[in-house]
Protein backbone atom coordinates (compact mmCIF):
# COMPACT_ATOMS: atom_id res chain seq x y z
CA UNK A 1 0.00 0.00 0.00
CA UNK A 2 2.89 2.33 0.63
CA UNK A 3 3.80 2.38 -3.03
CA UNK A 4 0.33 3.39 -4.13
CA UNK A 5 -1.00 5.73 -1.50
CA UNK A 6 1.57 7.39 0.66
CA UNK A 7 4.40 7.96 -1.80
CA UNK A 8 2.27 9.42 -4.51
CA UNK A 9 0.35 12.55 -3.59
CA UNK A 10 -1.79 12.51 -6.75
CA UNK A 11 -3.24 9.04 -6.22
CA UNK A 12 -6.22 10.58 -4.47
CA UNK A 13 -8.34 10.47 -7.59
CA UNK A 14 -7.80 6.76 -7.95
CA UNK A 15 -8.57 6.02 -4.34
CA UNK A 16 -11.66 8.23 -4.47
CA UNK A 17 -13.18 6.63 -7.54
CA UNK A 18 -12.38 3.12 -6.41
CA UNK A 19 -14.20 3.70 -3.17
CA UNK A 20 -17.27 4.88 -5.04
CA UNK A 21 -16.80 8.46 -3.93
CA UNK A 22 -17.56 7.72 -0.28
CA UNK A 23 -14.38 9.40 0.88
CA UNK A 24 -13.16 12.82 -0.26
CA UNK A 25 -10.21 12.34 -2.63
CA UNK A 26 -6.73 12.60 -1.18
CA UNK A 27 -5.21 15.99 -1.77
CA UNK A 28 -1.55 16.74 -2.26
CA UNK A 29 -0.22 18.49 0.82
CA UNK A 30 0.22 22.21 0.77
CA UNK A 31 3.65 23.82 0.65
CA UNK A 32 3.05 25.23 4.13
CA UNK A 33 2.22 21.81 5.51
CA UNK A 34 5.35 20.31 4.08
CA UNK A 35 7.46 23.16 5.44
CA UNK A 36 5.94 22.74 8.87
CA UNK A 37 6.78 19.06 8.81
CA UNK A 38 10.35 19.76 7.74
CA UNK A 39 10.59 22.29 10.57
CA UNK A 40 9.34 19.81 13.17
CA UNK A 41 11.71 17.16 11.90
CA UNK A 42 14.72 19.43 12.21
CA UNK A 43 13.59 20.48 15.68
CA UNK A 44 13.49 16.85 16.79
CA UNK A 45 16.86 16.18 15.22
CA UNK A 46 18.30 19.16 17.08
CA UNK A 47 16.92 17.89 20.38
CA UNK A 48 18.44 14.48 19.73
CA UNK A 49 21.75 16.01 18.71
CA UNK A 50 21.90 18.08 21.88
CA UNK A 51 23.11 15.29 24.16
CA UNK A 52 25.70 14.25 21.58
CA UNK A 53 26.92 17.84 21.29
CA UNK A 54 27.24 18.19 25.06
CA UNK A 55 29.21 14.97 25.29
CA UNK A 56 31.40 16.10 22.43
CA UNK A 57 31.98 19.42 24.20
CA UNK A 58 32.97 17.71 27.44
CA UNK A 59 35.41 15.42 25.65
CA UNK A 60 36.87 18.43 23.83
CA UNK A 61 37.41 20.40 27.06
CA UNK A 62 38.86 17.38 28.88
CA UNK A 63 41.31 16.59 26.09
CA UNK A 64 42.38 20.16 25.32
CA UNK A 65 42.83 21.05 28.98
CA UNK A 66 44.82 17.91 29.73
CA UNK A 67 47.19 18.44 26.77
CA UNK A 68 49.43 20.87 28.74
CA UNK A 69 49.61 18.26 31.47
CA UNK A 70 50.70 15.54 29.08
CA UNK A 71 53.32 17.87 27.56
CA UNK A 72 54.85 18.02 31.03
CA UNK A 73 54.24 14.43 32.15
CA UNK A 74 54.86 11.48 29.86
CA UNK A 75 52.10 8.93 29.34
CA UNK A 76 54.52 6.33 30.65
CA UNK A 77 54.99 8.15 33.96
CA UNK A 78 51.23 8.76 34.16
CA UNK A 79 50.46 5.07 33.83
CA UNK A 80 53.36 3.47 35.71
CA UNK A 81 54.42 5.80 38.55
CA UNK A 82 53.21 4.36 41.84
CA UNK A 83 52.68 7.75 43.50
CA UNK A 84 50.21 10.54 42.88
CA UNK A 85 51.49 13.70 44.58
CA UNK A 86 50.97 16.56 42.12
CA UNK A 87 50.83 19.17 44.91
CA UNK A 88 54.04 18.18 46.65
CA UNK A 89 57.41 19.86 46.23
CA UNK A 90 58.57 16.64 44.62
CA UNK A 91 55.57 15.89 42.40
CA UNK A 92 54.74 12.43 41.12
CA UNK A 93 52.04 11.90 38.54
CA UNK A 94 51.07 8.23 38.56
CA UNK A 95 47.29 7.82 38.13
CA UNK A 96 47.21 4.22 39.34
CA UNK A 97 46.69 4.99 43.06
CA UNK A 98 43.53 6.93 42.14
CA UNK A 99 42.37 4.19 39.75
CA UNK A 100 42.93 1.61 42.48
CA UNK A 101 40.85 3.66 44.93
CA UNK A 102 38.07 4.05 42.37
CA UNK A 103 38.02 0.37 41.42
CA UNK A 104 38.12 -0.82 45.03
CA UNK A 105 35.26 1.35 46.27
CA UNK A 106 33.29 0.44 43.13
CA UNK A 107 33.90 -3.26 43.68
CA UNK A 108 32.72 -3.05 47.29
CA UNK A 109 29.63 -1.13 46.20
CA UNK A 110 28.82 -3.68 43.50
CA UNK A 111 29.30 -6.59 45.89
CA UNK A 112 26.52 -5.02 47.92
CA UNK A 113 24.26 -3.67 45.17
CA UNK A 114 24.29 -6.47 42.59
CA UNK A 115 23.17 -9.43 44.72
CA UNK A 116 20.85 -7.40 46.93
CA UNK A 117 19.40 -5.43 44.02
CA UNK A 118 18.88 -8.54 41.90
CA UNK A 119 17.22 -10.48 44.71
CA UNK A 120 14.96 -7.53 45.46
CA UNK A 121 14.03 -7.34 41.78
CA UNK A 122 13.27 -11.07 41.57
CA UNK A 123 11.27 -10.95 44.77
CA UNK A 124 9.33 -7.84 43.74
CA UNK A 125 8.35 -9.17 40.35
CA UNK A 126 7.87 -12.88 41.06
CA UNK A 127 6.86 -13.18 44.68
CA UNK A 128 5.59 -9.92 46.16
CA UNK A 129 1.83 -9.32 46.18
CA UNK A 130 1.10 -6.57 43.66
CA UNK A 131 -0.24 -4.21 46.34
CA UNK A 132 3.01 -4.45 48.28
CA UNK A 133 5.06 -3.96 45.13
CA UNK A 134 3.25 -0.72 44.33
CA UNK A 135 4.34 0.62 47.71
CA UNK A 136 7.82 -0.84 47.97
CA UNK A 137 9.19 0.07 44.56
CA UNK A 138 8.87 3.85 44.91
CA UNK A 139 10.02 3.62 48.53
CA UNK A 140 13.13 1.81 47.40
CA UNK A 141 13.77 4.42 44.73
CA UNK A 142 13.98 7.03 47.48
CA UNK A 143 17.35 5.49 48.42
CA UNK A 144 18.78 7.02 45.28
CA UNK A 145 17.23 10.39 46.11
CA UNK A 146 19.09 10.90 49.40
CA UNK A 147 21.76 13.60 48.93
CA UNK A 148 25.16 11.95 48.66
CA UNK A 149 26.66 14.28 51.25
CA UNK A 150 24.26 12.76 53.75
CA UNK A 151 25.45 9.30 52.73
CA UNK A 152 29.04 10.47 53.16
CA UNK A 153 28.55 11.45 56.79
CA UNK A 154 26.42 8.35 57.32
CA UNK A 155 29.48 6.33 56.24
CA UNK A 156 31.89 8.21 58.50
CA UNK A 157 29.70 8.58 61.57
CA UNK A 158 27.73 5.35 61.51
CA UNK A 159 28.91 2.60 59.14
CA UNK A 160 32.65 2.85 59.81
CA UNK A 161 32.23 2.91 63.64
CA UNK A 162 29.87 -0.05 63.32
CA UNK A 163 32.45 -1.91 61.24
CA UNK A 164 35.14 -1.08 63.76
CA UNK A 165 33.24 -3.21 66.25
CA UNK A 166 34.11 -6.21 64.05
CA UNK A 167 37.43 -5.01 62.62
CA UNK A 168 39.21 -3.18 65.48
CA UNK A 169 42.15 -2.04 63.31
CA UNK A 170 39.92 -0.32 60.76
CA UNK A 171 41.04 3.30 60.34
CA UNK A 172 38.44 6.08 60.51
CA UNK A 173 38.89 6.67 56.80
CA UNK A 174 38.76 3.52 54.69
CA UNK A 175 37.26 2.24 51.47
CA UNK A 176 35.00 -0.41 52.96
CA UNK A 177 32.53 1.89 54.75
CA UNK A 178 31.91 4.30 51.87
CA UNK A 179 31.88 1.35 49.46
CA UNK A 180 29.07 -0.31 51.38
CA UNK A 181 27.11 2.93 51.65
CA UNK A 182 27.58 3.56 47.96
CA UNK A 183 26.28 0.06 47.34
CA UNK A 184 23.14 0.85 49.32
CA UNK A 185 22.69 4.03 47.34
CA UNK A 186 22.80 2.23 43.98
CA UNK A 187 20.57 -0.69 45.00
CA UNK A 188 17.53 0.99 43.42
CA UNK A 189 19.40 1.48 40.14
CA UNK A 190 19.88 -2.29 40.00
CA UNK A 191 16.55 -3.39 41.44
CA UNK A 192 14.27 -0.99 39.59
CA UNK A 193 15.68 -1.57 36.12
CA UNK A 194 16.08 -5.30 36.71
CA UNK A 195 12.51 -5.55 37.88
CA UNK A 196 11.31 -3.87 34.69
CA UNK A 197 13.36 -6.34 32.65
CA UNK A 198 12.09 -9.33 34.61
CA UNK A 199 8.49 -8.25 34.30
CA UNK A 200 8.89 -7.91 30.55
CA UNK A 201 9.58 -11.65 30.31
CA UNK A 202 6.42 -13.13 28.78
CA UNK A 203 4.16 -15.17 31.05
CA UNK A 204 4.30 -17.93 28.42
CA UNK A 205 7.92 -18.71 29.34
CA UNK A 206 7.05 -19.01 33.02
CA UNK A 207 4.08 -21.24 32.21
CA UNK A 208 6.37 -23.47 30.15
CA UNK A 209 8.56 -23.93 33.18
CA UNK A 210 5.69 -24.52 35.59
CA UNK A 211 4.15 -27.01 33.17
CA UNK A 212 7.28 -29.15 33.43
CA UNK A 213 6.90 -29.31 37.19
CA UNK A 214 9.19 -26.46 38.24
CA UNK A 215 8.52 -24.47 41.38
CA UNK A 216 8.40 -20.71 41.69
CA UNK A 217 12.00 -20.19 42.76
CA UNK A 218 13.41 -22.56 40.12
CA UNK A 219 11.37 -20.81 37.45
CA UNK A 220 12.56 -17.40 38.60
CA UNK A 221 16.23 -18.36 38.73
CA UNK A 222 16.57 -20.80 35.83
CA UNK A 223 14.16 -19.36 33.26
CA UNK A 224 13.13 -15.81 34.10
CA UNK A 225 16.53 -14.49 35.18
CA UNK A 226 18.38 -15.72 32.08
CA UNK A 227 15.56 -14.49 29.86
CA UNK A 228 15.80 -11.03 31.39
CA UNK A 229 19.58 -11.02 31.58
CA UNK A 230 20.08 -8.52 28.79
CA UNK A 231 18.05 -5.91 30.68
CA UNK A 232 19.58 -6.87 34.02
CA UNK A 233 23.07 -6.44 32.54
CA UNK A 234 22.14 -2.87 31.54
CA UNK A 235 21.14 -2.26 35.13
CA UNK A 236 24.50 -3.57 36.33
CA UNK A 237 26.36 -1.34 33.89
CA UNK A 238 24.42 1.71 34.98
CA UNK A 239 25.22 0.82 38.59
CA UNK A 240 28.92 0.50 37.76
CA UNK A 241 29.00 3.88 36.01
CA UNK A 242 27.19 5.45 38.93
CA UNK A 243 29.66 3.95 41.43
CA UNK A 244 32.73 4.91 39.40
CA UNK A 245 31.50 8.48 39.15
CA UNK A 246 30.31 8.85 42.74
CA UNK A 247 32.19 11.68 44.42
CA UNK A 248 30.85 12.97 47.70
CA UNK A 249 30.64 9.73 49.69
CA UNK A 250 34.21 8.72 48.96
CA UNK A 251 35.58 12.24 49.31
CA UNK A 252 34.11 12.44 52.82
CA UNK A 253 34.59 8.92 54.09
CA UNK A 254 37.56 7.31 52.33
CA UNK A 255 40.22 9.81 53.36
CA UNK A 256 41.82 11.85 50.61
CA UNK A 257 45.25 10.35 50.42
CA UNK A 258 46.10 8.57 47.15
CA UNK A 259 47.17 5.07 48.00
CA UNK A 260 48.01 2.27 45.59
CA UNK A 261 46.07 -0.40 47.44
CA UNK A 262 43.24 -2.75 46.61
CA UNK A 263 42.63 -3.52 50.25
CA UNK A 264 39.25 -2.04 51.22
CA UNK A 265 40.42 -1.61 54.80
CA UNK A 266 42.96 1.03 53.72
CA UNK A 267 42.22 4.71 53.31
CA UNK A 268 42.48 5.99 49.74
CA UNK A 269 41.44 8.68 47.29
CA UNK A 270 39.38 8.04 44.18
CA UNK A 271 39.67 9.95 40.92
CA UNK A 272 36.55 11.93 41.70
CA UNK A 273 37.62 12.66 45.26
CA UNK A 274 40.92 14.05 43.97
CA UNK A 275 39.16 16.27 41.46
CA UNK A 276 36.90 17.75 44.08
CA UNK A 277 39.83 18.22 46.46
CA UNK A 278 41.85 20.19 43.91
CA UNK A 279 39.00 22.27 42.61
CA UNK A 280 38.17 23.36 46.16
CA UNK A 281 41.81 24.11 46.99
CA UNK A 282 43.97 27.09 46.12
CA UNK A 283 46.10 25.73 43.30
CA UNK A 284 46.60 28.46 40.70
CA UNK A 285 44.92 28.04 37.30
CA UNK A 286 47.30 26.84 34.66
CA UNK A 287 49.69 25.11 37.01
CA UNK A 288 50.51 21.47 36.33
CA UNK A 289 48.83 20.56 39.62
CA UNK A 290 45.63 22.20 38.42
CA UNK A 291 45.82 20.68 34.93
CA UNK A 292 46.21 17.26 36.52
CA UNK A 293 42.50 17.16 37.35
CA UNK A 294 41.74 17.14 33.63
CA UNK A 295 44.09 14.22 33.11
CA UNK A 296 42.27 12.47 35.95
CA UNK A 297 38.95 13.39 34.31
CA UNK A 298 40.04 11.87 31.01
CA UNK A 299 40.93 8.66 32.84
CA UNK A 300 37.52 8.57 34.51
CA UNK A 301 35.84 9.17 31.17
CA UNK A 302 37.77 6.35 29.51
CA UNK A 303 36.88 3.96 32.36
CA UNK A 304 33.18 4.76 32.21
CA UNK A 305 33.21 4.52 28.43
CA UNK A 306 34.89 1.12 28.70
CA UNK A 307 32.24 -0.18 31.10
CA UNK A 308 29.47 1.12 28.86
CA UNK A 309 30.95 -0.60 25.82
CA UNK A 310 31.20 -3.87 27.73
CA UNK A 311 27.57 -3.36 28.75
CA UNK A 312 26.45 -2.75 25.17
CA UNK A 313 28.25 -5.89 24.00
CA UNK A 314 26.64 -7.93 26.77
CA UNK A 315 23.22 -6.53 26.00
CA UNK A 316 23.57 -7.57 22.38
CA UNK A 317 25.02 -10.96 23.26
CA UNK A 318 22.19 -11.86 25.63
CA UNK A 319 19.27 -10.20 23.91
CA UNK A 320 16.36 -12.62 23.60
CA UNK A 321 13.70 -12.50 20.93
CA UNK A 322 10.90 -14.00 22.95
Amino acid sequence: MSTILSDNPVSGGIAGSRNGGLLPPLRSRSLLGRLAERFIESGLLLAAAFSVLITGGIVFVLVSESLPFFRHVSAREFLTDRLWTPMFADPHHGIMPLVAGTLTTTAVALLVAMPVGTLIAVWLSEFAPSRLREVLKPALELLAAVPTVVYGYFAVDFVTPALQAFIPDLPTFNMLGPGIVMGVMIIPYVSSLSEDAIRAVPMLLREGSYALGAGKFTTAMRVVYPAAFSGIASAYVLAISRAVGETMIVAIAAGQQPNLSFNPLDPAATITAFIVQVSLGDLPHGSIGYQSIFAAGVTLFVMTLGFNIIGAVMRRRYRQAY
Binding site: L204, L205, E207, G208, L212, R222, A227, F229
Partner: peptide, 11 residues
Protein backbone atom coordinates in the same frame (compact mmCIF):
# COMPACT_ATOMS: atom_id res chain seq x y z
CA UNK B 1 2.74 -32.27 30.40
CA UNK B 2 1.61 -29.40 28.24
CA UNK B 3 2.56 -27.85 24.92
CA UNK B 4 1.44 -24.29 24.33
CA UNK B 5 -0.07 -22.33 21.48
CA UNK B 6 3.14 -20.47 20.73
CA UNK B 7 6.48 -22.28 20.89
CA UNK B 8 8.09 -21.24 24.19
CA UNK B 9 11.60 -22.65 24.36
CA UNK B 10 13.68 -21.43 27.29
CA UNK B 11 16.62 -19.09 26.66
Amino acid sequence: SMVFQKPNPFP
